[in-house]
Design a protein around this nucleic acid. Structure first.
Length: 474
RNA sequence: UCCCCGAUAGCUCAAUCGGUAGAGCGGCGGACUGUUAAUCCGUAGGUUGUAGGUUCGAGCCCUACUCGGGGAGCCA
């Protein structure tokens, strides 16, 4: 009976018959008349060693082609392993070679490869220890995200991927158009500039598929607010796009974001949820991904497990922007960028706070209104808004959120303050016009969370097929 | 987009002052072995990222471009 290796290692006993199917990691021949074939099927970190005697059906005609990367089905009986390195092994009674992998040409060798090289063979890198572990953890984290919100009665909202609104001006957007062939060629025209977003219905353009310029979403927040202000606490979890020409280890053109939005939540509740959320995810991974985590701690980042425990076990600090500025100016540190109230904090400042000064996750809140978007609620002091950023060691900003401005007059004046026309956001404003309520939300970048959890250095290595400037091969 | 660094065998890298290309790993052949990053012996493998320039001669110096890496900005 075909069973996956994770199942066998967890549930099977010596004496059980089983067939395994997977990809060969290594083969070692013994002159004793048998071969060791190490098979990995991706179900768990561990491979299973099959001992294949030379007189077994299939051995003679195919053993030479059982090379690293080839695919096999091996059936036999599980036995206690006399060798070191594994508890159980499969004593084979039949070997089937499913697909060969020319050893001379197969790019993955039984040696360490650089992540840069593996990125060039993204169709094969999932067969390595590192990427197997990364994507099993990513899967568990994704599931835990749904668990966390579903257990709390949050509604999962599928916010649109194609949008005609420019939320918060969160950065350059990708244009969405019908392909040239399917467009009415009589209406060729230049692309509208970025400033002509959010055209009113009266300016419908028949040459545009949607009647107006359309883009890939940069955030599901505005749509999330609609659902929060009707169906209650909700969250989105889907792909998000930024056309920024960012070339860093922390940015992608396509990434996955989780954006919860809660009615009747003030900033303090928002911060509490964000903290509970992150810590829940860390605890889940510590509990359920021990084998993969052990690998990260061994080969990727010595502190991988320590970091997760530190986050799971310690309260996040809450520090106002103003207090943070004081800490930084009194730190005696020399920064490349000067710290001054009213200016945004730079990466170096955030990292100093979370890595050196506080040495744990920190939630900064109450930022100057001038450096934050229009939808954040203005505090009574008139100078700050109810924004929060969650900063964690090594990664920096992992969550950005706020209490939303629920007062229509204040919202509209904030829009004008930032040269936005309230008419373009008419439906967003109507949420305040009809039955407005205090509400809050935040955004978490899944890949940044993955960096934190795995200890991986480059965000391109924690998403299956990274999209970055000049790169979208797979 | 800006700053810095890099591109040489399948992979990771070396090559002195500008003087005719090397190693380890991997592959292949063999030896040995309840092996497991196996070990030992042998062997093949190169338009030095692309285009131009300087020079008697360029992997090495110069220019441009392409791609990759690190940092910054933008942000999640």
């Amino acid at each position: 009976m075909y069973r996956r290796i994770a199942d066998l290692l967890k549930n099977a006993s010596p004496g059980d018959a089983a067939e395994i199917r997977g990809w060969v990691r290594t083969r070692r021949d013994s002159k004793g008349g048998f071969s060791f074939v190490e098979v990995n099927d991706g179900s768990c970190f561990a491979s299973l060693q099959a001992v294949v005697p030379a007189d077994v059906p299939g051995y003679e005609q195919s053993i030479k082609d059982v090379t690293t990367g080839s695919s096999v089905a091996i059936s036999g009986k599980l036995v206690d392993s006399p060798g070191k390195g594994q508890r159980l092994e499969l004593q084979a009674d039949a070997l089937r070679l499913l697909g060969t992998a020319d050893a001379d040409a197969y790019p993955l060798q039984k040696k360490r490869h650089s992540f840069e090289f593996l990125r060039e063979i993204a169709h094969l890198r999932t067969r390595t220890n590192t990427f197997g572990a990364v994507f099993r953890v990513r899967n568990r984290v994704s599931y835990a995200i749904h668990e966390f919100f579903q257990q709390r009665g949050f509604l999962y909202v599928h916010s649109p991927i194609i949008t005609t609104s420019d939320c918060e001006g969160a950065g350059a957007m990708f244009r969405v158009t019908a392909s040239r062939e399917s467009r009415d060629e009589s209406r060729e025209q230049d692309s509208p500039s970025m400033t002509s977003l959010n055209l009113l219905p009266s300016t419908l353009d028949p040459a545009e598929f949607f009647g107006r310029p359309a883009y890939l979403t940069v955030s599901g927040q505005l749509e999330g607010e609609i659902f929060a202000c009707s169906l209650g606490p909700c969250y989105t979890f889907g792909p998000t796009f930024r056309a920024e020409n960012s070339n860093t280890t922390r940015h992608l053109a396509e990434f996955w974001m989780i954006e919860p939005e809660m009615p009747f939540f003030e900033l303090i509740d928002n911060m509490a949820l964000a903290e509970e959320f992150i810590r829940h995810l860390c605890r889940t991974v510590l509990e359920d991904c021990q084998e993969d985590l052990a690998f990260f701690a061994d080969r990727i980042d010595k502190e991988a497990i320590t970091t997760l425990r530190m986050i799971a076990e310690n309260d996040f600090l809450r520090v106002t922007y103003t207090e943070a500025v004081e800490v930084l100016t009194q730190s005696g540190m020399t920064f490349d960028y000067q710290v001054e109230w009213g200016r945004d904090l730079q990466s170096e400042h955030e990292r100093y706070l979370t890595e050196q000064h506080f040495q744990r996750p920190v939630i900064l809140y109450d930022y100057p209104r001038t450096i934050k978007p229009f939808y954040m609620r203005v505090n009574d002091d008139g100078k700050t808004v109810r924004a929060m950023d969650v900063l964690v060691p090594r990664v920096g900003e992992i969550i950005g959120g706020s209490q939303r401005e629920e007062r229509l007059d204040v919202l509209e004046s904030r829009m004008r303050e930032q040269d936005l026309d309230p008419a373009h956001y008419w439906w967003y404003c109507e949420l305040r016009k009809y039955g407005t309520v205090p509400h809050s939300g935040f955004g978490l970048g899944l890949e940044r969370l993955m960096l934190l959890i795995t200890g991986m250095q480059n965000i391109r290595d924690v998403i299956p097929f990274p999209r970055t400037p000049k790169s979208a091969e797979f």
